[in-house]
């Protein structure tokens, strides 16, 4: 009996540590997404930003620092982010995406951003896209979200 209680107590402590909120978002990498999605599928949260986007910075300082949101982003979704103008090649859902505008435009838009937002030309940021476990887009937004609005979005999807 004592042993059982001790083990329960230890388990309880372990679980209570786990249940504590993380301090920051664990952003996943696109390379590992395919394998973690296979083993433990979850809906996907993608955030697209740029250096010059002031509203993105506001979200990063405020909405993404909210404890409840951090919790949801770390535990309910796989959360990924990328810069609209990145040169990197990204493989997503088995398809390779590059930035073909790289030396041709002052704001070179990555193909993955174009695909996810559904727009070819003006992409307004911040862009948030939520996909279900099968990579189907279920939500798409192009505005600043306050902590409360982000929370509503994350709870609902």
């Amino acid at each position: 009996m004592k042993k059982i209680i001790t083990y329960c107590f230890i388990l309880f402590c372990v679980f209570s540590f786990k249940a504590q909120s993380d301090k920051s978002i664990h952003w996943q990498s696109f390379n590992k997404l395919a394998s973690i999605q296979k083993h433990n599928p979850r809906p996907i949260f993608i955030y697209i930003y740029a250096d010059w986007c002031v509203y993105c910075k506001k979200m990063e300082r405020v909405s993404f620092k909210n404890k409840v949101n951090i919790d949801l982003l770390n535990n309910k979704y796989y959360s990924l982010k990328f810069n609209l103008e990145t040169e990197d090649t990204i493989i997503f859902n088995g398809i390779t995406y590059k930035n073909q505008e790289f030396t041709k435009h002052r704001q070179p838009k990555h193909n993955l951003a174009k695909f996810l937002s559904g727009k070819q030309n003006q992409i307004s940021l911040p862009t948030i896209v939520i996909l279900d476990k099968n990579y189907n887009a279920t939500r798409r937004l192009h505005t600043y979200l306050s902590p409360k609005q982000l929370n509503l979005l994350l709870e609902a999807s």
Partner: peptide, 11 residues
Amino acid sequence: KESTDNIVIPF
């Protein structure tokens, strides 16, 4: 919903 691909639009 969005006209092109039926995704729901929040807020």
